[in-house]
Amino acid sequence: MTRKSRRLWLVLSCLACFAVASGLVLNAFSSSIVFFMAPSQILREPPAVDRVIRLGGMVVAGSLKRSLEGQTPINQFDITDGQAAIAVRYEGILPDLFREGQSVVALGTYLKGSPFSASEVLAKHDETYMPKEVADALRKSGKWDPRFGKPPSAESLDSMARHDTDAQAHR
C-alpha cells in the first residue's frame, strides 16, 4: 500500500465515522428537528397546555370563516392531515398564499376541547409550479379544483391540453 492510498483510506474512514456519528445524532433528535406536527399526531398525544407547538396540514375546503372583532380580523378554519382535523382560531391577517386546500403551519397552543389558538400562520406551498393561465383553464373546465388536493403533474398537463384539442377536433 503506497502512502497515498493509505492517506486516502484514512480520510475516507474518518469521513465514514463522522457520517455515522452525525447520522445517529440526527436520528436521536429527529422529533425536535420536525418543524410541525400533524393533527392526528397532536390528537394522539396532546401536548402540555402551555407548550407552544406548530400544527401543520391542509386547510379543509369550506371550513374558513372570517369575521371582524372591532378592528382585528378573526379567522377560523380546520386543518387536516387526511386522518383527523383540528379547528384553528387565528386573530390577524392571513398570508397571501392562504386559501382553502392550501398547506399551512400554525404556531400556537392547544387545549383539548377548544380550538387551537394560533399566534402565527405560515403558508406552505408545494413543489408544483403552474402558469396562471393553465390553472385558470383547468379550473374553468372542471378538471381540477384547488380546494381539493394537489394540482396535476406537469406531464399530465401537457397530455390534458392535447386531449382537449383532440376532442375539439373530433367535434
Partner: peptide, 30 residues
C-alpha cells in the same frame, strides 16, 4: 442533510421540484 432534509423531516420549505428520479413538477415554460 441539505438535500434530503425536505424528505426526512416535515419542513416549511417545499420538496425539490427537480430531482433525478422523478419528472420535474414544473412546466417547460418555467
Amino acid at each position: 442533510i441539505i438535500k434530503f432534509s425536505v424528505n426526512w423531516w416535515n419542513t416549511l420549505h417545499q420538496p425539490d421540484s427537480i430531482t433525478l428520479t422523478h419528472a420535474p413538477t414544473m412546466p417547460e415554460s418555467m
